[in-house]
Design a protein around this nucleic acid. Structure first.
Length: 557
RNA sequence: UGCCUCGUGGUGUAAUGGUAGCACAAGAGAUUCUGGAUCUCUUUGUCUAGGUUCGAGUCCUAGCGAGGCAGCCA
């Protein structure tokens, strides 16, 4: 799927209109993650939106760590976030990155000055109520007993809060708005709380920390953000966002907040809390487990940044809390890889075939096409010999109807090679087939003058004498139900078959495989080299299977 | 309960008062040295009831349904 120049949605419509009206000199968006976890595909949607707008409207997009809560944030996460964002926008919108990254914590001094200003204007006060009291009063629409403290007293108390005179939770700074407001976020929201905690960047300099609304609004203003785009749950915060800008009498141009629906995908969970659980309880192998829909997991699995960007375009931007079908993500992968992946032959679950009328010790080099979708991809040679491996499920002793693969007495074409016929099966003492003895039709060689004879099935194979061994990790959806989130313990819906490890036989050309290249193992799926691979041992991750209409057909009966 | 927002095929989206379209999924067929890809065709939709208008998915009113918020988290 080629990426269009400019997708259309209600937010881009606003941006386009603001440009038409010359409301801003330059469009500035931002991506503001809290560094308390790894980025996932839902963040990718937001990154593509914000950087996409910057790119399409010739603006910039700031990455800003929203690090206002020292209890939850760590430098490790900053690293992973930057790696993931850079990877996702590389070669696409990286020259629209506005000097990255920014940190809300760099603005703590400014936030403090703005707070003092607010107090001076009589628009904020220090409140001594406990969290429980604050909560109860807010529900009742009742004013705090500390609401009418004098400006001088508020100034003094706030300074002493900053100086560390009070323990955690003893006091807060609250905006003085309207204790009875219909929107509870306007019922004198807390602006600062006391936390004697060490911050990953500011260390022990501060013991008061700004709340989200205060920090976020002012960060946007300080950075000259024009369009502050967030998810739906912040909708009710918008009037507080605007109140802060008004109360401080900040001059135009001011930022405006817009909200869109976060991504939900079937067969997955998206909340950071649940992803943390999967990691901490070792239900997956870390944040970058290829089954995780984290950006790092998807990357490791073999998904490319361009696939994620195309997907972000495919799903669109709306305010409707939708549930996107995982099949759409999978389709987007196949769509790209079909055009770009290098074809190779590999046998995942090898079984042996002996060609009884083919000379022992003889090897032929057969020509194979690297990518039928790309004429420039060229060809390669594959060795062929008397003993071969074929896929276990490409042979059946007693096959169902419409089975086009190898069966006793039946014929099948070996891709890029010959038509073979299965004459005999050799069994061990337990009655298991251990070897298939076949004869080759030497007139049927692919590309040869008499190759025209048709048989119904074509299968892949690898020459036993020339095969290389590799570990292949076969990944599937992490959850076995469409909505693991919808009730009960989501962990009980984990797909027990989401990872299967096999020892495969691969064609020789795969020895030179490169990690950044995508491969199609013909008839099987798309694969990428795992970073755990070494010079001695390749490890492959299956990114996604090919569409398999036979599997569907077989399931019917 | 209060406040906010949102309802277009199974799913995701488009149509900015003027022919309800696209993609995914599903189904049928053609083709194929990948049961892939490609091509053709098919099924399925504007939450309900009123109103405004020559004309409503779009505007208005009411209802119904869904989601979000009600942390000293973000």
């Amino acid at each position: 799927m080629t990426e269009p120049e400019r997708p259309s949605d209600f937010i881009r419509d606003v941006v386009a209109e603001d440009i038409r009206a010359a409301k801003y000199e330059k469009i500035v968006t931002r991506f503001p993650p809290e560094p308390n976890g790894y980025l996932h595909i839902g963040h990718a949607k937001s990154i593509c939106l914000n950087f996409g707008i910057a790119r399409e409207f010739v603006g910039i997009c700031n990455i800003r760590m929203d690090d206002t809560n020292p209890a939850k944030e760590e430098a490790e996460y900053v690293e992973s976030i930057m790696t993931d964002v850079r990877w996702l926008i590389e070669g696409w919108a990286d020259n629209h990155l506005g000097g990255a990254p920014f940190y809300a914590s760099d603005y703590f001094d400014k936030f403090y000055e703005y707070a003092v200003d607010l107090i001076r204007q009589g628009k904020a006060y220090v409140c001594d109520m406990t969290p429980e009291e604050t909560d109860a009063y807010r529900r009742l629409g009742k004013a705090s007993g500390f609401r009418d403290r004098s400006v001088e007293e508020n100034l003094d108390l706030f300074a002493r809060m900053k100086a560390g005179e009070f323990p955690d939770g003893a006091r807060t700074l609250r905006a003085k708005i309207d204790v009875n407001a219909a929107n509870v976020w306007l019922r004198d929201p807390v602006l600062y709380r006391i936390r004697h905690a060490s911050h990953h960047r500011t260390g022990d300099k501060w013991c008061i920390y700004p709340m989200y609304d205060w920090a976020h609004t002012l960060s946007d203003y300080i950075e000259g953000i024009t369009h502050s785009i967030c998810t739906l749950e912040f909708e009710v915060h918008r009037s507080l966002y605007d109140w802060i800008l008004d109360a401080l009498e900040l001059p135009e141009p001011r930022p405006h907040q817009y909200e869109f629906a976060r991504l939900n995908l079937t067969y997955s969970v998206m909340s950071k809390r649940k992803l943390v659980q999967l990691v901490n309880e070792k239900l997956v192998n870390g944040w970058d487990d290829p089954r995780m829909l984290t950006i790092s997991g998807l990357r490791r699995r073999g998904v490319t940044a361009s696939v994620l960007r195309a997907f972000a375009y495919n799903i669109g931007i709306t305010k409707y809390p939708s549930m996107t079908d995982m099949a759409l993500l999978e389709h987007t992968m196949r769509d790209e890889f079909n055009r770009t992946a290098t074809r190779r032959l590999a046998v995942l679950r090898p079984i042996k075939v002996v060609l009884t009328n083919y000379p022992e010790g003889k090897t032929e080099q057969l020509e194979a096409i690297n990518n039928p979708e790309d004429a420039n991809a060229g060809t390669r040679k594959i060795p062929f010999g008397r003993e071969l491996y074929i896929e276990r499920n490409d042979f059946m002793e007693t096959p169902p109807p419409k089975y086009f693969r190898l069966k006793p007495g039946g014929e099948v074409r070996l891709k890029y090679a010959y038509i073979i016929k299965c004459d005999e099966v050799v069994k061990d003492g337990a009655g298991n087939v251990i070897e298939r003895r076949c004869t080759v039709d030497l007139d049927s060689k692919s590309g040869g003058p008499t190759a025209g004879r048709k048989v119904k099935g074509t299968i892949h194979w690898v020459s036993a004498a020339d095969a290389i061994d590799a570990e292949v990790r076969l990944y599937d959806r992490l959850f076995s139900v469409p909505e693991p989130d919808s009730g009960g313990d989501f962990k009980s819906f984990i797909n027990s078959g989401s990872l299967e490890v096999v020892n495969a036989k691969c064609e020789l050309a795969l020895a030179g495989a490169r990690p950044e290249e995508r491969y199609q193992f013909e008839r099987l799926g798309y694969f990428a080299l795992d970073p755990d691979s070494t010079g001695e041992k390749q490890i492959w991750n299956r990114t996604i299977t090919l569409r398999d209409t036979w599997a569907k057909e077989a399931k019917k009966s």
